[in-house]
Nucleic acid binder design. Structure first.
Lengths: 347, 347
DNA sequence: CTGAAAGCGCTTACAG
DNA sequence: CTGAAAGCGCTTACAG
C-alpha cells in the first residue's frame, strides 16, 4: 500500500478510512462531513467522531476537483520592499487568514513582464481572485477585463474605471491637517509638498488648498514647494523658507521624511516646535514620527484597514457582485507634540 | 472595438481536448507534455502544438492528486510589520517565485495559538515545506519534529538543534565594524550596544570585544552601554559619553536608530563626523542611513540573501536531504561618510 | 436516510 | 511508441 520506499511517506487518512470506521459509505461520510441535511443525526455524529479519532483532513486537491472554488487568492505586489505594501498585505492576509482562504504571495519587483508571468501562474493555480497591491497612489495599468476571476487594486488604483480600486483619501488627509493647524491658531502655513510626480503629493496639495480657502487663508509663499521625498530636501527647503518667510508659524510636509528634515532645520535655527512653529507630516511612519524632537504629528493612511477592506471586497466579488471605480478610504490625523500634543485634540 | 463573443468559456480546456486535437490518447498527451521519453518526437510536437493553440493549462489539483508534491510552501511570519521579515520574505519568494513553487503566506501576529492554527491550515493544504520567519535572532519555540514536511527557520532560529535555522552572523558583524574602525586609526571606541535583551545586541558585543582584543584595545568606559533601540536613547547616552570620555574617537551603535541619535548629539556638541569621531550602526536601514548628516556606515545583514538561502535549503530538504543546526550567514559592512566614506574602503 | 456509481482532470503501470 | 484502464480522494446526482 505504500509509495516508493525512498520517501517512506505514510499514506494519509482518507475519507474512505473515515467511512469504514463509521460503518457507512463514503458518500454518506462526505455528506455528513459537509453538513448536508440528508443524513440522520445519529449517523452524522458517528462520522464526525470517526473523522475526529482519525484526525481526518480532507484532501484539498480532491475537493477542488469537484468544486468551483480553490480557496486561494493571489496577492500580487510590485514591491515588497516598499513600506506601503506591507501593512496592506497584513490587512488582506488578516481578512482571509483565519478563514478557509489562503493567500498566494507574488512579488513582481516592478517588472511588467514578471507580473504577467505571475498572473499566469496564479491563474494556473486556479486562484479565486487577485488582489494587486501597489506602492504609490498613481494609477497603474489594469490587468484587463478578460481575467476569469475578480481583481481588486489596493493603494495603486487601476487606470481602467471598470476595475475596483481602493486608495487612501489623500485629499481629505490634506484638509484634515490644515483644519488641525488652523484650529491651533496657525495662520502662516507653508507646504513642503514633496515630489510633484506623485499623485499622493498632488492630492494632498489639493486638500490643503481647499481647506485653506475655506478658512480664508493662503499658503505662505503663495504656493507649495516641491522636491524629493527626503530629509535632505526637507532641511534645505526649510532653510530657504525661513529666509524668505521668517514669520511662518506652521510647516506642513508631504511626508514624514521631509518633516524630519524640517524639524531639524527649525531646531538649528532656534525656532521652537511647537511654541513658535507647528510641524506635521504624512504617512505616520512610526520609526520617524515617534523619535523626532519633538514627536511628529502625521496623517495616518490606515493602510491595514485598506488592505482588509480590499480583501473583503474581493470576497464579495468572488460571490458574484461586481462594480467598478476608485473608492477612497478614510485617513486619520495622529496628533503628537510637534503640533501641541495629543491633549490639543484634533479630529 | 469589437467584442469577442467566443470568450464565453465555461468549461476550461482539459488534457482531453488537447489529446483530441492532436489525435492521440490522453495517456500519450500526458506523456508528451511531461517530457516522458517514450513518445515519438513527431507525436510530441503535435501534442505540444495542440496544447499551444488551445492555451492548455494543466489543472494543478488533478496533478497534485497523482503526485507526491503540491508545489506550494508555507511561509509563516510572526510579524509582517517588522522590517526584518520583509527582505527575508522577498528573498524566499524570489527563490521560489519564478519556479513551479508558490508561496502561501501566513501571519501569526506573534500569537502562538494563531501560529498553531496556521500550521494546521498549511498542512491541510498539503504544502511541501514550511519556512518560519522571525523578527529577532533570539531562539523561538520549535514547531517540533513531528511535522510531515521539512521546516526551515529564518532570522529567528529554532530552540531545537534538530531543526535547521539560518541567522545573520552578528558576531562577525561586530568584528567587521571594529576592524574597519581600527583600520581607520580609531583607538578610543565606545559601544552603545542597544537592548541587552536581544541576542543580536549581545552577539554584536561579543564580536566587537573579540576584535578589540585582537587589536589590543579596550572599549571606552571599559564596557558597552545598553538601552532601548531608539534615537532618544542614542542621543542621551552619547551626551553622557561625551561628558565622561571626551576623548572618544569612534561611536559604534547597536542599530541605526541609536546611531542616528548619536550623530545628532555629536553634531550639537560640535564634534565633527568623521573628522573628530567616527560613527557606525547595524542593520543598514536605508531610510535612516542615507539621509543622516553625514550618511551612516552600517553593517548590512544581507537579509534578502538569507531568505533566498533558507528557501533553497528547503528545496533540498524537500528532496530528502536533511540536517539540523544553526547556520550563520555572512553580513557586510556598508561604508558611508560617517566613517570617512566609501573611498576609505573597508572589508 | 443511505449507498452504488459516475465523474472531476490527470498520471502511470501495463499490455499491445 | 501508443492507448485502454485503473486509480488519486472527493462530491453529487440518482436510485433505492
Amino acid at each position: 500500500m505504500g509509495r516508493d520506499s525512498r520517501g517512506e511517506q505514510k499514506r494519509s487518512i482518507t475519507l474512505t478510512d473515515v467511512a469504514r470506521l463509521a460503518g457507512v459509505s463514503v458518500a454518506t461520510a462526505s455528506k455528513a462531513l459537509n453538513g448536508r441535511r440528508q443524513v440522520r443525526d445519529e449517523t452524522r455524529q458517528r462520522v464526525l467522531a470517526a473523522a475526529e479519532t482519525l484526525s481526518f483532513t480532507p484532501n484539498p486537491f480532491a475537493q477542488a476537483l469537484n468544486m468551483p472554488r480553490s480557496g486561494t487568492v493571489g496577492m500580487l505586489t510590485s514591491d515588497l520592499e516598499g513600506r506601503f505594501a506591507l501593512p496592506i498585505m497584513m490587512g488582506a492576509e488578516d481578512a482571509f487568514g483565519s478563514g478557509a482562504t489562503s493567500v498566494l504571495l507574488c512579488d513582481a519587483r516592478g517588472d511588467a513582464e514578471r507580473e504577467r508571468k505571475h498572473v499566469e501562474a496564479l491563474l494556473a493555480r486556479r486562484v479565486d481572485g487577485l488582489i494587486v497591491v501597489g506602492s504609490r497612489t498613481d494609477p497603474r495599468p489594469s490587468l484587463g477585463q478578460r481575467l476569469p476571476v475578480p481583481v481588486v487594486y489596493a493603494y495603486a488604483p487601476s487606470d481602467d474605471d471598470a476595475d475596483v480600486s481602493f486608495v487612501p483619501d489623500n485629499i481629505r488627509g490634506g484638509a484634515l491637517a490644515v483644519e488641525h493647524l488652523v484650529a491651533g491658531g496657525r495662520r502662516r502655513i507653508a507646504l513642503l509638498a514633496g515630489d510633484a510626480d506623485y499623485a499622493a503629493a498632488r492630492d494632498r496639495v489639493a486638500g490643503v488648498t481647499e481647506a485653506l480657502q475655506a478658512a480664508g487663508l493662503e499658503l505662505v509663499g503663495g504656493a507649495a514647494s516641491f522636491g524629493p521625498w527626503s530629509e535632505a530636501w526637507g532641511r534645505r527647503v526649510t532653510a530657504e523658507l525661513l529666509d524668505s518667510d521668517p514669520e511662518v508659524d506652521a510647516v506642513l510636509c508631504g511626508n514624514d521624511q521631509v518633516a524630519r528634515g524640517a524639524l531639524e532645520t527649525l531646531r538649528e535655527r532656534g525656532r521652537r516646535v511647537p511654541e513658535d512653529v507647528w510641524v506635521a507630516g504624512f504617512d505616520d511612519w512610526e520609526v520617524l514620527t515617534t523619535s523626532s524632537r519633538p514627536p511628529l504629528t502625521s496623517v495616518d493612511m490606515n493602510l491595514e484597514e485598506l488592505g482588509r477592506t480590499a480583501a473583503r471586497h474581493l470576497f464579495h466579488a468572488i460571490d458574484g457582485q461586481r462594480h467598478g471605480g476608485i473608492v477612497t478610504l478614510p485617513v486619520r490625523l495622529v496628533v503628537r507634540e510637534s503640533t501641541g500634543g495629543a491633549e490639543n485634540g484634533a479630529d
